[in-house]
Computed example of a mutant assay.
Amino acid sequence: MLGRHREREEETMEEKMQRIISWLKEIDKSEHIPEFEVDARTIDILHKIVECSEDVDRDISLLIKDVEERTTECEAETTRLQNILTEILGLNPSDVSGKANSYLEVLVECAMALETKDTSISSLFCAMADTSVALCETELKNQELEAELNKMGKILPAVLMLEQQLKEDLKKAEEQLERDKAKTDRQSRNLKFLKDKMEDFKVRISAAEEKLAELGLEQSLMHVSLVLLSQKLADTNKEIEALEKDVSAFLDLPPNPSMVQVRIEEVKQQLNTVEAELTKEISRMVVDMVEPRRSLQ
């Protein structure tokens, strides 16, 4: 086969063309050949078709020959069996009863169903044994499949419940995601609103501070200065509380009039100093706040 393919590959374009024409004449059974475009590609395609057709014809010829040989063998075997029935057993096929013919037909059908080479008892028993083994194997496989099916049937409700639970959880998660998204959008809008307001307040505060500066308001009365003064006042109050704790600690000492009197005087002086500074600072702030108002009036 390989040598034949190599020989075909070595064929020239003219030889291929000659084979194609001969094949077309054989198919058409006439001298008329269908027109086709003559080029290298068309010739190669037609040449491959010719090769496939010849291979198929060859295979068919071999198959027909094999069938004919088997037919001849069957006819010879039939003649031999008829001779045995006629000469040895003295039975004429035409004398066989209808019931016997039906039995023979059943026997033949059984042999064909079991795919035996003949209708002998050994062949039938062997085929029946093989069929029984195949049947047992099939039943065993069916039992295994049934057991597996029952096992899957027991697991299936749990799987379906789990699937339903997963669907519900997924639905809840999607709903929660929608709520979180809406909440995030609302917070984002609020944040944007607050940022815009903050920028607006900054602009308005800056404009007010500039206007107050033009009117002669001191920087000490601005918001930042007032916050610093408030912190300073809170620190001063803490110092006063610390001093009062120190004074209360001296109250528990044994009586020593001279030392106690000296310490009390020192504490009073510190308190008076702090109060004087605080009063002075508050007075200054009040004066600074009143003067711009008068100028505005």
Rank of each mutant, 00 (worst) to 15 (best):
M1E: 13
M1S: 05
G3K: 15
T12E: 02
E15S: 04
Q18R: 05
I20Q: 00
W23T: 01
L24H: 01
I27E: 05
K29L: 12
K29T: 15
K29M: 15
E31H: 04
P34T: 12
P34K: 01
R41Y: 07
T42W: 09
L46I: 15
L46H: 03
H47Y: 11
E51I: 01
E54T: 00
D55K: 05
R58H: 10
S61P: 03
D66Y: 15
R70E: 13
T71Q: 11
T72V: 07
T72G: 05
L81S: 03
Q82T: 01
Q82G: 02
N83G: 02
I84E: 06
T86V: 00
E87I: 08
L91T: 11
N92G: 05
S94P: 00
S97D: 04
N101H: 12
N101Y: 09
S102D: 12
Y103L: 04
Y103A: 08
L107Q: 03
V108Q: 11
V108R: 09
A111K: 01
M112I: 01
A113C: 10
E115P: 00
T116P: 02
D118P: 01
L124C: 07
A129V: 13
D130Y: 15
D130V: 14
S132F: 15
A134Q: 10
A134W: 15
E137D: 10
E139T: 12
L140H: 08
L140V: 03
L140W: 06
K141L: 11
N142E: 14
A147V: 06
E148I: 05
N150C: 11
N150S: 05
M152D: 05
G153I: 11
K154P: 00
L160E: 10
L162I: 09
Q164R: 13
E168A: 08
D169W: 13
D169V: 08
K171L: 01
K172L: 01
E174T: 14
E175I: 03
L177H: 14
D185G: 00
R186F: 09
S188T: 15
R189G: 02
R189T: 03
K192D: 05
L194M: 08
L194P: 01
L194G: 10
D196C: 03
K197D: 08
E199P: 02
E199R: 11
F201Y: 10
A207S: 12
A208T: 14
E214R: 05
G216R: 03
S220I: 14
S220N: 09
S220C: 06
L226I: 10
L228M: 14
L228D: 09
L228H: 07
L229E: 05
Q231C: 08
K232A: 13
K232E: 15
L233G: 08
A234S: 06
D235L: 12
T236M: 07
T236L: 10
N237E: 09
I240M: 03
E241S: 13
L243P: 00
E244V: 12
E244A: 04
D246G: 04
A249K: 07
L253T: 12
S258P: 04
S258W: 14
Q261V: 12
V262H: 09
V262E: 14
I264T: 11
Q269K: 08
Q270F: 03
L271F: 04
A276R: 05
E277D: 15
E277N: 13
T279C: 10
I282G: 07
I282M: 06
R284Y: 09
M285Q: 02
V287M: 04
V287L: 04
M289E: 03
M289P: 00
E291P: 00
